[in-house]
Simulated scan of single mutants.
Amino acid sequence: MAYLGENIPKLGFGFMRLPMIGEEIDIEQTKEMVDLFMSKGFTYFDSSWAYNGGKSEEAMKAAIVDRYPRESFQIATKCPVWIVKTEEEARNMIWTSLERTGAGYIDYYLLHNLGNNRTKYFDDFGMWDYVRELKEKGLVRHIGFSMHDNADALDKLLTEHPEMEFVQFQLNYDDWESPTIQARKCYEVALKHHKPIVVMEPVKGGLLANPAESIRKIFADANPNVSLASWAIRYAASLDNIITVLSGMSTLDQVQDNVAFMENFKPLDQDELAVIEKARQAISEIPSIPCTGCQYCIEGCPQNILIPNVFATYNRKMIYNDLAGAKSRYGLETRMTGKASDCLACGNCEQVCPQHLDIMESLKTIAEELEK
């Protein structure tokens, strides 16, 4: 059965991590990257109103829109309305994006980063009806949303908003069985609702391209001639109902590597999937906070600390030795909720934790390491 975006090549170009010269995007290098990407038949570009303070969307105009026929590519961008205060500001985001990109219309327009306390802003500002109006007027071709939340939240959103045509969420082999990211469960929810998927974070922000030595060896033993990133991107692209798999490429070398293995894309075979499973198992055995994401601890927390999410950010540091990435993700996860340092040590969380975790002590450690 055909689905929206079925014929779009399965590698998309994320404009979030473009090459920089100081505080400015390196437009000339970006043009080279775009030219190579499109010369190999790839067409999908993803940005957001918020990326690089709007410079990402402006780079789309300079590197893509001004240089290629409009029907030869797809522009996707997003509206993160939880960062503004009024409905007028929220609704004006599309006009800013259209002006910055010069695209005339947006092919795939997303309500950006739903989940947790952020979703209510889209409800309060009437964004669900508004994006439908934009589609009716021809300003956007297709409407959907991105989210960072669990499968139950995704199921609720798709049940309440069947008019959404596609979804975008984090999916990679490491997070496939994650109790907090719930990639597999989210994937199954999308299939249940017959919604195609744009995959983000297939390489987990670059972590799966630079894993621990024990993980690298597993892949090198299986095939020493391909990049680590190729395993992660091909894994996501091998799934059914995928519009495209976004890669936030920062260098021409990264584009060259990605297009080399995706130009004539072949899904992973059973032997390759077995290698992925072996790597996933090895990652799970690296010491980390063994939180299962049951969320029992959240309900009784007087400080509204999303404890499983906070633990997941710290596990990024423990498993991948990525302190900078852990701090960045921690900042996003606690932007609108309680921080680890807000813990009152009331003990409500530990009383209900099925894993009997030392939650209060872990929060103290996390505050000391991630809030500096």
Rank of each mutant, 00 (worst) to 15 (best):
N321M: 13
I298H: 02
L332S: 09
C291F: 03
V310R: 09
K317I: 09
P302V: 15
R280N: 08
I305K: 02
R280S: 11
G325W: 00
S341Q: 01
Y330W: 12
C343Y: 02
I307T: 01
A312Y: 06
I289L: 05
F311D: 01
I319G: 01
A324R: 05
Q281T: 15
I319Q: 04
E277M: 00
A324H: 08
A345P: 00
I307L: 08
T334Q: 06
N309V: 02
P290W: 04
Y296C: 14
C301G: 09
A279H: 03
D342S: 12
C343M: 03
L332N: 07
L332W: 09
A340M: 05
E299N: 13
I283W: 08
D342A: 10
Q281C: 14
T337M: 07
C294N: 10
C301L: 13
T292F: 07
Q281F: 12
A279F: 07
A326S: 13
D322F: 12
D342W: 02
K317V: 10
L332H: 08
A282L: 05
L323N: 10
A312I: 12
K327R: 15
N321K: 15
C301V: 09
A326L: 07
E299D: 15
A312F: 14
K327P: 11
K317H: 15
E333K: 03
G338I: 06
I319F: 00
N315S: 14
L323E: 10
L306M: 15
V310N: 06
Q303E: 14
E277A: 12
A279N: 04
Y314D: 00
V310W: 10
F311E: 01
C343D: 00
I283Q: 07
P290G: 11
I283T: 02
T334G: 08
G338Y: 04
C294T: 01
Y330F: 14
Q295E: 11
S288R: 14
T292D: 13
L323M: 13
M318L: 15
Y320R: 01
E299P: 00
G325T: 01
L344D: 09
I305F: 05
Y296F: 15
G331Y: 07
A340R: 02
P302W: 12
Q281D: 15
K339E: 02
I298F: 06
S288T: 08
T313I: 05
L332Q: 10
T337I: 10
I283C: 10
R335I: 07
E333R: 06
T337P: 03
C291M: 06
P302A: 08
C294D: 13
C343L: 11
T337Q: 07
C294E: 04
I286H: 02
S341P: 02
E299C: 03
I305S: 01
Y330V: 09
R329W: 07
C301I: 13
R329T: 14
V310K: 12
I298C: 12
A312K: 12
I289F: 04
N309K: 09
C301D: 01
G331H: 06
E299V: 14
P290M: 10
G331N: 14
K278Y: 02
M318I: 14
T292E: 10
